[in-house]
Design a protein around this nucleic acid. Structure first.
Lengths: 339, 339
DNA sequence: TTGTATGCGTTATCAT
DNA sequence: ATGATAACGCATACAA
């Protein structure tokens, strides 16, 4: 391999342009403070040498990176991908760059990623959900890194949140299900440990049952990772139990689609033999047949609002204000009225 | 807001532990070169102060970041998400961190992101597809950043590639379609400009037609961004034209699913009235009904192999060797034999 | 408008 | 095994 590569520095550019490094730096950052003549010379040198500023050095000198970090559970779920896309677009429009990493739903990995992004000089952070070890909040606080929590809303959170009320949303869907005459519900939940969204959703259903005098303890609940195949297995487990529900509510659309698939394979017709509901309203929900009854969440809006607010926080124009978004029911073919 | 935050540095840790900065640094990097006693003192101080190394400073001093950058067109397509997940897992196992950014299929944004990642000290880069401006390759070459190209395979590429032959894969599917008696094909393509995968796939179909004495110019081709809704619109456009195909082949599964939806809405039965094929074999392909005939691509394998090879390149044990993976046909209900 | 000089937090070289 | 110190590349306060 080529023994050494010429990586041009500010100094090289300055020499080539016949000016000082300060002028080059000014030219690249606050170009209005530089004469047109110098600017041209510098730009030519930059072009010629293929110069790119060293980010680490810049961050160290300026204590500012115009970088925002986001840490999400997984890229494989469309809801994060979509919200993040909007987040990134809005950030970009405001002059910021987004750095993303994912945790595979592992709290220890998340803690690590938070430190990694902060070490990289992220000016602000976006996290998903509010449930995490207290030491992390302490760390964030001490470093003074503006942090916003999305995909969840909570009045009393230590950090500002932007999102919707997972419990109330699922409760609303549950109320509807009960309105339609269902009395025996089965529930397929995401893994609850460390995931406030999953846990809130389950609570929402239990709440709804209690309100109608039904005992939540009767309800078969199956925890599963958010994968189609696992949703399918969970569905089978539930349907083969002694307690046969007339409706299986799922923690998200991915699980619900898995349930629908398995129902089909088991020879059960949806919604004639069993109703199924989801949560999130991802594209998938309208692609399966029958279409999936679910809770619609404004992912894109959440993403762009989060970007706006986080930008304000980073620029010290806001200390972080929470924002609750509305979710809404999407009643489709997978849920039917019980005769 | 709190006027200032205490961000502990190596120096603070050294003071607190009563050792020199050198010892702290060694302790954090090559801990075997430090006495057990010092190590304990240092670790305690690190813990107490909540110290996180400054990445920029470290990169500048060590000229090494253990960071790999990946630039993909979009996070919203499952094929990238999936392959990248595997890429990231393998990287992580090898002690590297992944930084991801997306371009929304815009070449100018890609160029920018490449520079951004390099400025951030990425030890290596993963890019999608080989079609890009020559100046970018020159820049990469000059900086000496190990770069690997994935999602495409090309013998004569300037950079090592890992992937499959998009043209041959689509050609194989086209051959199959023609074998089944179809003679009138419509094609929904992704946007071809700047996207070698899209263009190769279209070429594959044209090649297949020519081989059977059919004129590719007769084939209606509709370009569309990779979105379900746009695939649907493209399908409608094609079917309403004078030339009514018996099969509509699509540049990827997302477009194909859009086509299937619109077919349904138009009262056309798949595959009785019209056959539809996709490309990629994402989960969606087995969720729609009828299930989608498509080309299966080993995304996860591609991701992890890319990680292995790129790691080798970064560590100078390889100068980059290309690797061709096999794709295979998945014949499912959406394609039927023409009577 | 421009240049000079200093500091940012880390690693690595060289002594000890 | 440990400590002192010189880079690393950039932004900025200050001087001119």
């Amino acid at each position: 391999m080529p023994s050494t590569h010429i990586i041009p520095t500010l100094d090289d550019v300055a020499k080539a342009a016949g000016v000082s490094t300060a002028t080059v730096s000014r030219c690249l950052n606050t170009s209005e403070k530089v004469s047109e003549r110098s600017r041209l010379k510098v730009m030519k040198a930059v072009e010629m040498l293929g110069y790119t500023p060293n980010f680490g050095a810049r961050a160290m000198a300026a204590k500012r990176t115009f970088t925002i970090g986001a840490i999400i559970p997984t890229m494989e779920n469309a809801i994060f991908a979509r919200g993040l896309q909007a987040f990134q677009e809005t950030l970009y429009a405001n002059g910021y760059t987004l750095l993303v990493s994912s945790t595979a739903y592992r709290p220890d990995v998340e803690a690590e990623q938070i430190k990694a992004l902060i070490a990289r000089g992220a000016d602000g952070l976006l996290l998903i959900g509010y449930e995490r070890d207290h030491s992390i909040y302490k760390y964030l606080e001490r470093r003074g890194v503006p942090t916003l929590i999305a995909w969840a809303f909570a009045q009393d959170s230590a950090l500002p949140t932007i999102g919707f009320d997972n419990r109330a949303s699922m409760r609303a869907l549950c109320d509807k299900v009960l309105d339609m005459g269902h009395k025996k519900i089965g529930f397929i939940s995401g893994i609850i440990a460390g995931n406030d969204r999953a846990s809130e959703r389950l609570q929402g259903v239990k709440e709804g049952m209690r309100a109608r005098g039904l005992d939540p303890n009767d309800m078969p609940v199956c925890e599963s990772t958010y994968e189609i195949e696992n949703g399918a297995n969970a569905f089978e487990t539930i349907m083969q139990g002694a307690y046969t529900p007339t409706v299986v509510m799922c923690g998200n659309d991915v699980l619900a689609v898995g349930a629908m698939q398995r129902a089909h394979e088991m020879g059960l017709k949806v919604p004639q033999d069993v109703s199924i509901t989801g949560f999130d309203d991802i594209e998938l929900a309208r692609i399966v047949s029958p279409q999936l009854t679910t809770v619609h969440v404004p992912h894109r809006e959440m993403g762009s609002r989060a970007a706006e607010e986080l930008t304000r926080m980073v620029e010290h124009v806001s200390t972080g204000v929470s924002c609750q978004l509305d979710s809404s029911l999407r009643l489709r073919g997978s849920l039917r009225v019980l005769d």
